[in-house]
Design a protein around this nucleic acid. Structure first.
Length: 505
RNA sequence: UCCGGGAUAGGCUAGUUCGGUCCAGACUGUAGGACUGUGGAUCCUACGACCCCGGUUCAAAUCCGGGUCCCGGACCCA
C-alpha cells in the first residue's frame, strides 16, 4: 500500500479546528465590516510578473511557480498586489475611497516553522483613495479592534513612518534601490537588537541562542574582514577577533552595537555621508511613548526634509487616539520587509507566540497602484496572519465547539428506519440539527453514540410508542425521558424540557 | 541551505541511560460479550506498533553508519 503524506508545510483541519477557525473568522469579518469594508476575492494564483513586480527576480525562490499556456504563474504569497491589479484592471466601480477586505489562503515556498506554513491564511484590508493620516489611523484601529474582539489583548503595536528613512536617504542622493538595501540592513539591526534583548532576559544561553550568536559573529566578522581589505582602517574596540567565540555570553550585549558600527563602516565605504549614517542609526534607536519620542525626533530631524514625514506620523497618532487606540509604541525604526511602503508603517506582535510572533503588518503604499498602470491612488492597508491569530487566541483561552446536532434519532429495530428519516426531515425543517441512525447498531450503541456526539436529545422510535402516535424523547443531559406525541415533539424540544417521567407499567 | 531535537498500535505513550528480564507494557480507540427496548460506569475477549536500509553482536526498539520524514530554531519573511 502506498502511504501518502501531508505536503510539507500544509495542514489538515479537523472538524473541531474548523469550528475554532470559523469562530475567529466570524469575528474578523464582523469587525472589518463594522468599518465599512467589503469582501473581495481574487484568484489564488497570478502572473508571476505581477507578484514579483516590486521585488525583482530573487523573490522567485520564495514562491511556488508554474507554467501554463506559456505564461509563468505563481501561487500568491500575499494579496495586496492582486487587489491593486483588480483596481487597475478597472472592473471596480465603487465610490472612493475603496474599502475592501479579503480572507484566503496564500503560499510561500519556505522552510516551515512554528506558526509558519507553506499554505497559510491571510486576512487583510485595503483602504484606497485617501491620503489622509486618518485613513492610516483607521486601518491601525481596525487591526487593534480585531485582535481585541477576538480576545487577544496581550499584543504589542509599533507605529512608525518609513518616509523618515527614505527622506534621509534621498537627501543624501541615494536611489530607490540603495534606499531599500540600507533600509533592509536597518531592519536587520532592529531584529538583532530585539533578539539580543530577548536572550539577555534569560539566565543562561540556550543552544539556539548560541547558534544565533555564532552565526552573526561569523557574518559580521566576514563583513569586517572584507571592509578592511577594501581599506577601512580598523574597527577599534568593535572589531571582532578570532577569539570572540570564547565568551559568547558577552556578545549578547555587544552584538547590536558591533553590528551598527560594522554597517556604519560599510555604508560610509559606499560613499554615504557620515552625517547621514549617524542620523540613520540615531533615528533607528528612537522608540517609546509618543510624549518622549516626538520631542527627541523633532530635535534630531530639525530642518531636514523629513520633518513632513514626522508631522504625518504625529497626525496619525492624534487620529489614532481619537479612535481610542493609545496602547502603541512609536518606533521610528519599524522598517518592514516590504519595499513598497511609502509612509506610515506598523506591526502587531503577540509575544506569546515565540519566534514567529508577528501577527499583522501593514502601512501606506501610495505608489503601488500607479506602478501597476493605474491612476495615482494613495492607499493604506495591512494583512493579518490568520492562523497566528487563531493560535494566539487558543493560547489565551479555549474556543468552545458548537454541538454537532441537537437531536439524534435512534431506532429500536431496523424496520423503523424510514419513520426515522421522515421525522428527521420534519425536524430539520423546523430548524433542528438532526442526525439519524444508519449503522444498524443496537440501542445501547446508538445511545452511546448520541451522547458521545453531545446531542442534546435522543428520539427513540419503538413499536410500542409508535402505535399510539408517540415517540420516546430522552434528554441526554438530564437523563429524563418520556413518551411524546409526534406532533408535539418539536414544541417540547423547543421549550427545552421533557415532561415528567411516566411510570413504567 | 544550515543548526538542534525527535520517530514505538488509529490516537497519546512506557521501555532506549547500561543490548538479553520486551515474540514490547499502560491508557484510549475499534469490534464482540457479560446486558436481544436505554448511553459517558465496571469486567472479560479480540484487533493493533518498535520509520527505512545496512553494520556490530550469540543476542538490537536499545549501539554504530547512511537515508526519509516530523518538530523547533537560523537565514528569509515580498
Amino acid at each position: 500500500m502506498v502511504e501518502f503524506s501531508l505536503p510539507r508545510g500544509t495542514m489538515d483541519f479537523l472538524p473541531e479546528e474548523m469550528a475554532q477557525r470559523r469562530y475567529v473568522e466570524d469575528i474578523v469579518r464582523k469587525t472589518f465590516e463594522s468599518f465599512g469594508f467589503q469582501e473581495v476575492q481574487t484568484p489564488i494564483f497570478e502572473e508571476f510578473a505581477l507578484l514579483a513586480a516590486r521585488s525583482g527576480e530573487e523573490i522567485r525562490e520564495g514562491m511556488f511557480t508554474f507554467m501554463a499556456d506559456e505564461v509563468e504563474y505563481a501561487l500568491r504569497p500575499e494579496i495586496t498586489a492582486a487587489v491593486c491589479r483588480m483596481i487597475v484592471t478597472g472592473k471596480i466601480d465603487l465610490p472612493k475611497p475603496y474599502k475592501v477586505y479579503y480572507l484566503g489562503p496564500c503560499f510561500r515556498y519556505e522552510e516551515p516553522q512554528a506558526g509558519r506554513y507553506r499554505q497559510f491564511w491571510q486576512a487583510g484590508i485595503e483602504l484606497m483613495g485617501s491620503q489622509s493620516p486618518m485613513a492610516d489611523a483607521e486601518v491601525i484601529c481596525v487591526g487593534a479592534k480585531t485582535l481585541e474582539n477576538v480576545g487577544i489583548t496581550l499584543y504589542r503595536l509599533k507605529v512608525g513612518n518609513i518616509g523618515i528613512f527614505r527622506g534621509i536617504l534621498e537627501d543624501a542622493g541615494l536611489d530607490l534601490e540603495n534606499q531599500n538595501r540600507i533600509i533592509g540592513n536597518i531592519d536587520g539591526i532592529m531584529s538583532t537588537r530585539e533578539k539580543c534583548a530577548l536572550i539577555a532576559e534569560k539566565s543562561e544561553l540556550e543552544i539556539d541562542d548560541k547558534t544565533y550568536i555564532k552565526t552573526y559573529l561569523s557574518m559580521l566578522y566576514d563583513l569586517q574582514m572584507s571592509l578592511i581589505s577594501e581599506g577601512v582602517e580598523s574597527f577599534g574596540k568593535y572589531e571582532i577577533l578570532p577569539s570572540a567565540l570564547e565568551n559568547l555570553a558577552s556578545w549578547v550585549e555587544k552584538m547590536p552595537i558591533v553590528m551598527e558600527q560594522t554597517y556604519r563602516a560599510a555604508w560610509v565605504a559606499e560613499g554615504v555621508p557620515e552625517k547621514t549614517v549617524d542620523l540613520l542609526l540615531e533615528v533607528s534607536k528612537v522608540c517609546g511613548p509618543r510624549s518622549e519620542v516626538m520631542p527627541t525626533a523633532q530635535t534630531l530631524l530639525k530642518g531636514s526634509a523629513v520633518e513632513q514625514s514626522l508631522q504625518e506620523l504625529d497626525e496619525v497618532l492624534t487620529y489614532l487616539e481619537a479612535y481610542g487606540v493609545s496602547n502603541y509604541e512609536v518606533v521610528l525604526g519599524v522598517a518592514r520587509g516590504l519595499d513598497y511602503y511609502t509612509g506610515t508603517v506598523f506591526e502587531f506582535d503577540v509575544p506569546l507566540l515565540g519566534a514567529q510572533k508577528q501577527v499583522c503588518g501593514g502601512g501606506r503604499y501610495d505608489r503601488l497602484v500607479e506602478e501597476f498602470g493605474g491612476l495615482p491612488t494613495p492607499a493604506t492597508g495591512y494583512a493579518f496572519g490568520f492562523d497566528r491569530i487563531v493560535l494566539s487566541r487558543l493560547l489565551i483561552k479555549d474556543i468552545p465547539t458548537p454541538r454537532k446536532v441537537d437531536v439524534f434519532i435512534a431506532v429500536v429495530n431496523e424496520s423503523l428506519d424510514q419513520n426515522a428519516v421522515r421525522i428527521s426531515q420534519d425536524l430539520r425543517e423546523r430548524g433542528f440539527k438532526v442526525e439519524t441512525e444508519m449503522t444498524q447498531r443496537d440501542l445501547k450503541g446508538q445511545l452511546g453514540y448520541a451522547s458521545e456526539i453531545r446531542a442534546k436529545y435522543c428520539v427513540i422510535l419503538g413499536p410500542k410508542e409508535l402505535k399510539e402516535g408517540k415517540v420516546m424523547l430522552k434528554n441526554l443531559e438530564t437523563e429524563e425521558q418520556a413518551p411524546v406525541l409526534l406532533e408535539e415533539l418539536a414544541e417540547v424540544m423547543k421549550e427545552g424540557n421533557v415532561p415528567e417521567n411516566e411510570p413504567e407499567n
